[in-house]
Design a protein around this nucleic acid. Sequence first.
DNA 1: AAGCGGCGATACAGATCTGTATCGCCAGCG
DNA 2: CGCTGGCGATACAGATCTGTATCGCCGCTT
Lengths: 207, 207
Amino acid sequence: MFLRKANDLGGHPLNAYQHATDIRERILQVASELFYREGTRAVGVDLIVARSGVAKTSLYRYFPTKDDLIREFLLREDRDFWRHWDAAANPDSAEDELFAQLQWMGDRMVRPGYRGCPQINIAAEYADEKHPARVVAAAHKMELRSRLGGLAQAMELARPEEFALTISIVIDGAFSSGGALHKQGPARFLQSVAHTLLVAARDAKTD
Amino acid sequence: MFLRKANDLGGHPLNAYQHATDIRERILQVASELFYREGTRAVGVDLIVARSGVAKTSLYRYFPTKDDLIREFLLREDRDFWRHWDAAANPDSAEDELFAQLQWMGDRMVRPGYRGCPQINIAAEYADEKHPARVVAAAHKMELRSRLGGLAQAMELARPEEFALTISIVIDGAFSSGGALHKQGPARFLQSVAHTLLVAARDAKTD
DNA sequence: AAGCGGCGATACAGATCTGTATCGCCAGCG
DNA sequence: CGCTGGCGATACAGATCTGTATCGCCGCTT
C-alpha cells in the first residue's frame, strides 16, 4: 500500500540528483561500516575519502562536519533497525512478535563483525549528551522502549512499561556482552529470559 | 638505613620512593577521573599533566605510553569494584549478599557524574580486543560472572552458571542504560529483576 | 661536601586530524 | 556552443596529539 521500491528515492526527476544521491550514499555507506567497526573517533575523514573513492570536497558538500556524518550514520543504523523490526511484526500475536524480534536481534550478535550496539557505543565515545549523535541514540532507545511497551500492552500485562523497561535492559546488556553469549546462542538466551519474565509478569497479574 | 617511617609502604628505604609513589598515584587519580568522565580518546596527556600539576616527564616515567596509563586506569577501577564487592560479602546468606551487591551497584548509577561502566565503555573506544585495556576489561567481566556463579552455587540453584550469566547481562544493561532507570531507582530495579529470576530458577529446580 | 637523581618547565619533533582553498575536467543544459 | 556546476585531486592551514630532549633546581645519600 504505502510501500515503495527501495531504489525510489523520492521521485526526483533529474538524473543529476540521482547521481548526487549515489555519491552521498556511497560516502555514508563506507563511513558507516568504518565507524561501526573501528569507532567514530578512530576513523578520520581522510580514510573515508580514500575508501569511498570520492573527493574530500564531495564529503564536506553533503556532510558539513564530521559530527553531521556521525549523526547520519546513527540515523542510518536506526532506520535499518526498525526495518528489521517492522519485518518481524505480527499483528495476530504480540507474544509471538516479541520472540520474533528477539530472534533477529540475537542473530545479529553472532554475525562476524559484531561490535555491539552503535547507539550505545556512541555514548561511550562522546560524553556530551547534547552531541547530535547522542540525541539520535537517546531517541532510538526511547523508541525501543515505546514499541516494547506496545507489545506488553497488547499482551495485557499488568505493568507494561515496567516489563518493557526490563526487556530493553536485558537487550542492552546482551548487546554489550554479546560475546559471552556465544555458547548457547544469544537469540535463545534472550528468548529464555524474556519467557521467564513474561511468565512472572502474568503470575503477578493473577495474584 | 634501617630506620623507616611508619607509612613507608613497600619497605623501600628511601623517602624519595614514597614521594614517587605519591606522584604516580596523583597522576593516575587525575587521569582516571578525566578518562571516566570524558573518555580516554577525548583526554590528552597534556590535560592530565596540567590538571595534576606534574611534569610531563614524570607521567612518562611511570607510564611509558598512554595505553599503559589507560590500562592502569581500568585496573584501578577493577580494584575499586571488588573492594566494594568484598565489603558487601555475606558468608551467612548468598541470597542476601546478592541483593546487597546489587544495592551498591544501583547506588553507583545515581551518582552525579555517572557515565556507565568503564570496562564496557573501553570496548566501544578500542576495536582491537588485544588492546591492553580491553584485556583488563574482559578479565573483569569474567571475574564478575565467576563470583555471581559462586553465589548461585551457594544458593544451590539448578543451573548456577546460567543464572550468573543472566544476572551479569542485566547488570551490564543497567550500567549501559542507567539513565532510563532513574525514576524508580536502579538498585530497586536490579533487585526486583533478580528476585524474579531467582524465584523462577528455584521453581524450575522443583519441577 | 659532592653528586646523583627525581622533578618541573619548556621546547620540540613528527604524526594526524578537521576543514578549506584551488586547480582542471567534463557532463548536462539553455 | 558556451556556461554552469558537480566532481576528483591536491595542497594547505591550523589545531592537537603522543612522545622525546634539554635545561636547571633541589633534596637526599654517601
